[in-house]
Design a protein around this nucleic acid. Structure first.
Length: 580
RNA sequence: GGGCGUGUAGCAUAGCCUGGAUAAUGCACCGGCCUCCUAAGCCGGGGACCGCGGGUUCGAAUCCUGCCGCGCCCGCCA
C-alpha cells in the first residue's frame, strides 16, 4: 500500500514542491513510509528544508499540506504536525485497492519473468543424525523454493548430501564388524548417531580398525564393486531415515533432488584441468591450489584454496567448484542459492570468487550464499552434534505433534480421531517451522524446546487459528463464498480500516520477503494481519452485522484475510486447517 | 594477530540496508472480558541509560569511529 500511495500522490507533491522552489533532490528522498503508524501511512519530514527555504519546518509543512490536500482528496487525508506532512490513506482509496486485490487470483502479487534457480539446501550427512541445524537449512530452503516458484521461476532443488569422503572408510568397516543385517537394523531405527560414534570411537582407539578404514577409503575411491555395494547400503538406510523426517516436516524434497557429493567425483579431475588451463593452478607444498585475490592467512601470506591435496585426494572446495560447473552447464541455471550456515561464509565467498576467476561462472549468473545463524543452547553455546545429548529432529517433531494433539482434544473435543491427528500434525509441525522462519535468518538463534513448541503468541498456531475462525464464519453463513468477490468494501469502523491497511500491504511485503530471501518478513506481516483480524473480529460483527452491505463487506474482509493467511502459510510450508 | 558477525525490557525477538515523531511484538507478571460468528483469542497496565564512549546531522537503535562482551572463520576435515 505504501508503495502505491507514494506513487499516486507523488505528482501532486512534485507540483507543490516546485511551486515552492524546492528541487527534487532536496525532498524526494525524504518522502516515504511514515515511521509511526498511528500518525500516517506516508510522511514528508520538512526539517531539512528549513535551511533552504529559510522558514521553520512547521511553516513549510503547513504550506505543503494546504497545497496538496484538496488534490489528494480521492487518495489520502493530509495533515501536518511538528514539521511533518502526513498522509493517511482514505477508506475509499483502501476500498478500491482491496477490490483489485480481492478479485485477483494472485491477491495482488505479480509473477516475474521466470529465471532458473538452483537451490542447494538441507544436505544431511549419511550415517549421521539430522539435527536442528539441518532443520534450519531444510525449512528455510523449502520456503525459498516455494516462494520462488510462486513468483514464476523455475526452481531446481538440490540436496547435496554428505555421502562421500574419508569417514566412509570407517563407516563401512564398522558396518562389516556389526554384520550387514544388524547394521541395517540399527540404521533403520534412526539411531544414526550412535552408529557414527561407535565407528569414530573404534577409529581413534583401535589401530587395526583405523588401518582397515584407510584401506577401505582407497577401495571406495577406486570403485571396488563390493565396497560400493556396502556404501550403497549405508546411503540407502540413511536416506530412508531422512525421508521419514522430510515426510513428517512436509517439505518438497524427495529422492529426485538428491545429488550427493559422490555424484561429482567424475567432475573433479575436470575442475583441476580447467583451472590448470586457465593458468591459475599452483603447486604449494605438494598440493594443487588456487590463490584467490584478497585472502590472507594468519601470517599475512596469500591464502590458498586447496584443490587437490598432497596425497592426491580432492577437497570440498573442489567439489563445490564441480557443483558450479554442473549447475551452470548441465542445468543452465541463472541463479545459484546455497542455504548453508554462516560459518561457511568465507568458504563460499572464496569458491564464488574462484569460479568467476576461472570462468566457470559468467557474470550473468549470480551465486548467493543464503546464510543462517547457528543454533545455540540456552546458555548461548553452539549446539554441537559431536558431544552431549543431541536433540533428534525426529523426536522434536514427534513431541510437537503430540502436544498439538493434546491441545486439539482439549480445545476442540468435537473433532474425530482422524481429523484431530491431521490437525495436530499441521499445528505441531507448523509451530516448529515458524519458530525457525520468523526470526532474521542470519542471526544465531537460541534453541528453546518450550518456546519452539509454544502454541500461543507469535506462532504458527496463532495464524492457523485466525484462519480456522474465518472458515468457521463461512461454514455458518448460508451464502456462496465465491460469490462475494467483487462486492464493495465499506470501511467505517477503525478496526476495519486498520485490517484493510494490513491486507493492502501484503503484496509488496511478500515481494520484499522473496527478493531478499528473508522469510521472516512475511512471517512478521502475517502476524500483524492475524492480530488486526483478531481485533476486528472481536469488535465487528460479521454475520450479525446491521445491514446486508456491511455484512458482505465484512465477509469480503474475512475472505481476503483468509486467502492471505493461507497463501502466506503455504509459502512457509505450513498447512492451514479449516478447523482446529 | 587478521577478518566477518552480533549486543534492543526478566526472557525471546522485530526495527538497522534506505536516519525522522511516543523504540514494536510475543512469553512471563498485574487487572479486566466467554447467555453473542472458535477465549489457541480480545482489552488495559507495569517493565528499555537500544553494550559503553566519541563523531557526522536540524535529528542517531539506525551512518562513521574507538573500546568492551560474545560467536564464527583464518592451508591439506566437510
Amino acid at each position: 500500500m505504501i508503495r502505491d500511495l507514494i506513487e499516486e500522490s507523488l505528482p501532486f507533491f512534485s507540483e507543490a514542491m516546485s511551486s515552492l522552489g524546492v528541487p527534487d533532490s532536496d525532498w524526494l528522498r525524504l518522502f516515504g513510509k511514515a515511521t509511526v503508524e498511528d500518525h500516517a501511512d506516508v510522511a514528508l519530514p520538512c526539517h531539512s528544508l528549513a535551511k533552504v527555504l529559510r522558514r521553520s519546518p512547521a511553516d513549510i509543512a503547513e504550506e505543503i499540506c494546504s497545497l496538496v490536500s484538496t488534490k489528494l482528496e480521492e487518495i489520502a487525508e493530509v495533515s501536518y504536525i511538528g514539521g511533518f506532512v502526513n498522509l493517511k490513506a482514505k477508506p475509499t482509496w483502501l476500498s478500491r485497492r482491496l477490490i483489485e486485490i480481492h478479485s485477483d487470483d494472485r491477491i495482488g502479487v505479480t509473477a516475474d519473468v521466470g529465471l532458473t534457480y538452483v537451490v542447494d539446501y538441507s544436505a544431511p550427512n549419511v550415517a549421521k543424525e539430522m539435527h536442528v541445524g539441518h532443520l534450519r537449512s531444510t525449512v528455510i530452503g523449502d520456503t525459498i523454493v516455494r516462494m520462488l516458484e510462486f513468483k514464476g521461476h523455475k526452481v531446481i532443488k538440490e540436496n547435496h548430501i554428505g555421502d562421500w569422503g574419508t569417514p566412509f572408510g570407517m563407516l563401512i568397516e564398522h558396518l562389516l564388524d556389526l554384520g550387514e543385517d544388524e547394521a541395517a537394523n540399527e540404521l533403520s531405527v534412526g539411531d544414526l548417531d550412535s552408529f557414527y560414534k561407535q565407528a569414530r570411537e573404534k577409529f581413534v582407539s583401535n589401530d587395526e580398525f583405523a588401518e582397515r578404514s584407510r584401506g577401505r577409503v582407497v577401495k571406495l575411491q577406486g570403485g571396488d564393486s563390493e565396497t560400493l555395494r556396502l556404501w550403497r547400503v549405508l546411503v540407502d538406510e540413511s536416506m530412508r531415515y531422512f525421508n521419514e523426517v522430510y515426510s513428517m516436516l512436509g517439505v518438497l524434497l524427495d529422492d529426485e533432488d538428491i545429488r550427493g557429493e559422490s555424484s561429482y567425483q567424475d567432475l573433479l579431475p575436470i575442475v583441476v584441468e580447467r583451472l590448470s588451463k586457465e593458468g591459475i593452478l599452483e603447486n604449494s607444498d605438494g598440493a594443487d591450489v588456487v590463490f584467490p585475490e584478497g585472502w590472507y592467512n594468519r601470517e599475512g601470506e596469500p591464502l590458498p584454496m586447496i584443490i587437490r591435496k598432497g596425497d592426491g585426494g580432492y577437497n570440498y572446495s573442489t567439489s563445490d567448484l564441480a557443483c558450479i560447473i554442473d549447475r551452470i552447464d548441465r542445468l543452465s541455471c541463472d541463479r545459484l542459492l546455497y542455504v548453508v550456515g554462516t560459518p561457511q561464509k568465507q568458504h563460499f565467498e572464496m569458491v564464488f570468487q574462484v569460479a568467476t576467476m576461472a570462468g566457470f561462472m559468467p557474470d550473468s549468473n549470480i551465486a548467493t550464499h543464503v546464510n543462517f545463524g547457528s543454533v545455540l543452547d540456552t546458555n548461548g553455546k553452539v549446539l554441537k552434534s559431536r558431544e552431549g545429548e543431541v536433540i533428534k529432529l525426529h523426536d522434536l517433531l514427534r513431541e510437537s505433534i503430540n502436544r498439538a494433539s493434546e491441545a486439539v482434544s482439549k480445545k476442540n473435543p468435537d473433532l474425530d480421531d482422524k481429523e484431530r491427528e491431521e490437525v495436530a500434525k499441521l499445528v505441531g509441525i507448523g509451530a516448529v517451522k515458524f519458530a525457525d522462519l520468523s526470526t532474521e535468518r542470519t542471526k544465531d538463534y537460541v534453541f528453546d524446546w518450550e518456546r519452539m513448541l509454544s502454541f500461543d503468541g507469535n506462532s504458527a498456531p496463532y495464524l492457523q487459528y485466525a484462519y480456522a475462525r474465518i472458515c468457521s464464519i463461512f461454514r455458518n453463513w448460508a451464502g456462496e463464498r465465491e460469490g462475494i468477490i467483487g462486492s464493495k468494501f465499506l470501511l467505517n469502523h477503525p478496526d476495519e480500516i486498520y485490517l484493510s491497511r494490513k491486507l493492502v500491504d501484503f503484496p509488496s511485503i511478500l515481494e520484499e520477503s522473496i527478493q531478499s530471501f528473508n522469510p521472516h518478513k512475511l512471517c512478521i506481516h502475517l502476524l500483524s494481519i492475524a492480530s488486526s483480524f483478531a481485533t476486528f473480529y472481536e469488535n465487528c460483527k460479521v454475520l450479525n452485522s446491521e445491514d446486508e452491505n456491511s455484512k458482505l463487506s465484512r465477509l469480503s474482509l474475512c475472505d481476503l484475510t483468509a486467502r492471505q493467511l493461507h497463501l502466506g502459510l503455504g509459502l512457509l510450508g505450513i498447512g492451514s486447517p479449516e478447523r482446529m
